[in-house]
Design a protein around this nucleic acid. Structure first.
Lengths: 211, 211
DNA sequence: CCCCTCATGTAAGTGGTTACATGATTTA
DNA sequence: TAAATCATGTAACCACTTACATGAGGGG
């Protein structure tokens, strides 16, 4: 529904080839919208047919030619129209939340490891975002109202701050979940229904586990 | 990839018909996983064929018969196996973030209204979650280690706390975005390139907008 | 010599949405 | 009598992923 528009925004920020777009979708714009190169090439072709973008074949020495795409008037109009069209606040899909509720019907130990892995991934992403923020938006030199060229930067920064806030929220929440899972495992989980793969716990916890 | 598992968890929490599942996917489990009734019926049929769930036709007076689904052993095993399988931390899709970066190439006024709408929707959802929390998890009566039947509740509560944290984060971030957009509009956006649909602003702001 | 990067694509399959369809009962 | 709720489905389509395919050049 909107990968076209993400591509339009990215091409307005800077024209580029399908390959370059695919790389951007691994970082930057890809932090809040994913796309594989296969999908990008397909959509780009459709957008070219519809006159939304124009391709300029750029011969390169020692490398395959690339098609440099830029936004055409029709594409710009399509973007404007989309920007003015209200969209519904999207509903998230959280596999992990399903797993957490599912943990009530399973040994929580495996899920604790899984949640720890996710917590680590979010901490890594946060560090990555913060490094990018320092690099791209650190120590602003100006003061007073910013000029016309700063708007793009400012808005990119606002989006990045959203990513940072999201990762911080996730880390705090996963810590909360881990505490809940630990209580579940220590205080409640004690029968052997699910113990097929778990090595036997130490005797003290087995004692505590008396029904 | 996982709607089957969301259905399994929901049916383990309480058996029900496809219709009832569809209603649950509008609330509760639907807060972090959406599904329409069409999809649910289709998946449910496949799950029945695979022996993951069992259907019991319940005749009702004055209403159409319903198929009461419950989880079979094979389904339970499939869920356990999925719970033990690591999943990648999912990448979010945020249309709104694309729009915000796109706002650099358009009149920000329309986007301000859009962001305000989204802020309102998230505030509403937060209020809804908080009411549900009070209703379902308010004033816990027990103290000390909770019993075996509380695990399901505790984990549901942990997931709900995640929803609450998410909405709070979004509201704070959208306030941040609104501040950025207002600065953009007031300090920077002043030429008439995009003014096709915007009624002329008041003279004082037009004065400030002198290049 | 093998792998990585650059560069572009096709084909097949899965997952999910939207539109259409039916029909009885309860509530306003 | 019109609309909403309960209840189940089919069909067509669109979005997206995964696997496969090619080929040149550079670095270890």
């Amino acid at each position: 529904m909107a990968i076209e528009h993400a591509i339009l925004v990215s091409l307005l920020e800077r024209p580029g080839s399908g390959y370059e777009l695919a790389r951007r979708f691994e970082r930057s714009i890809g932090y809040f919208w994913t796309a594989t190169h296969q999908q990008i090439y397909r959509v780009l072709k459709r957008m070219e047919n519809d006159g939304w973008v124009e391709a300029l074949v750029v011969p390169q020495h020692g490398r395959p030619d690339k098609k440099q795409y830029s936004v055409a008037d029709l594409g710009r109009a399509a973007l404007t129209s989309w920007l003015h069209d209200p969209i519904e606040p999207e509903t998230v899909r959280h596999d992990l939340a399903v797993k957490i509720r599912g943990a009530a019907f399973d040994d929580p130990s495996a899920l604790i490891r899984e949640v720890e892995r996710h917590r680590q991934a979010h901490a890594d992403r946060l560090a990555h975002y913060l490094a990018g923020e320092e690099r791209d938006f650190g120590r602003r030199t100006d003061s007073g109202p910013y000029g016309p060229d700063d708007a793009e930067r400012e808005l990119q920064h606002a989006v990045l701050r959203g990513g940072i806030a999201y990762e911080r929220m996730m880390i705090a929440w996963l810590d909360d979940v881990l505490a809940t899972l630990h209580r579940f495992r220590d205080d409640h989980f004690r029968d052997d229904r699910f113990r097929a793969d778990a090595p036997s716990a130490d005797p003290s916890s087995a004692d505590r586990a008396a029904r």
